[in-house]
Amino acid sequence: MSELLSEPFFELKGSLFPLSVIHSSDLSVAGLQAALQQKLDQAPGFFHQAAMVIQLTPDHQTVDFNALKQLFQQLKLVLVGVAGASTEQKQLAQAAGLAVLRLGQDSKPLAPAPGSSGEARVEQVPMHTKVVEQNIRSGQQIYAKGADLIVRGAVGAGAEVIADGNIHIYGTLRGKAIAGASGDSTKRIFCQNLQAELVSIAGHYWLSDSLQGDFWNKAACIRMQDDSIAIGEL
């Protein structure tokens, strides 16, 4: 045994955390505020105090990082850093106390879709699959980053499964399931027995109350249809 529970310790370890990355052609305070507010309205609780990074491009003119930091604070978000900064942007960001980050390969911004300029966009990521073999118990949280998630058991009340991709649950879903967590609204949730506390796709969510109906206690598939959540047969 190497470690006393009661002994204080200090350790510095590299870790990976999910951060939301904002791509937006308009980084003015007003522009970003409008776009973020729209996201927040879709999913009020979901982004609460979420850590965020702004993706910069050479096209961005001088950005007022101090003002943006304040904006994030007002919106109850936490701006932790910037990515893709030029030398000049780097200095400005650092002066505002932001981290300067480098994003990995898979996060290169896609070419903006026509007509989408000015809109805050969350990126699409290639999907892998994460498989969990047991029940997920109350208090446990599983995140399949950039991946689909398959659970070969039940998701207990008070447990949470999150995936950037689709979620498949071969047992009963009693807890929360959050698919398309990085914003992809084509993702779905499949479960053998629907008794969920919450289901969410790309930030849209339904609570247990809205789920009571034809598919409660039954096998179900949850997806987005015309900007709203829809439940159908598995």
């Binding site: 047991q134 029940n135 997920i136 118990r137 109350s138 208090g139 446990q140 207990g156 009340a157 008070g158 447990a159």
Partner: peptide, 13 residues
């Protein structure tokens, strides 16, 4: 039951 589920999670981790 909820707390037992929680403890089962602890037992397995």
């Amino acid at each position: 039951v909820r707390d037992s589920d929680r403890i089962l999670g602890m037992l397995s981790s």
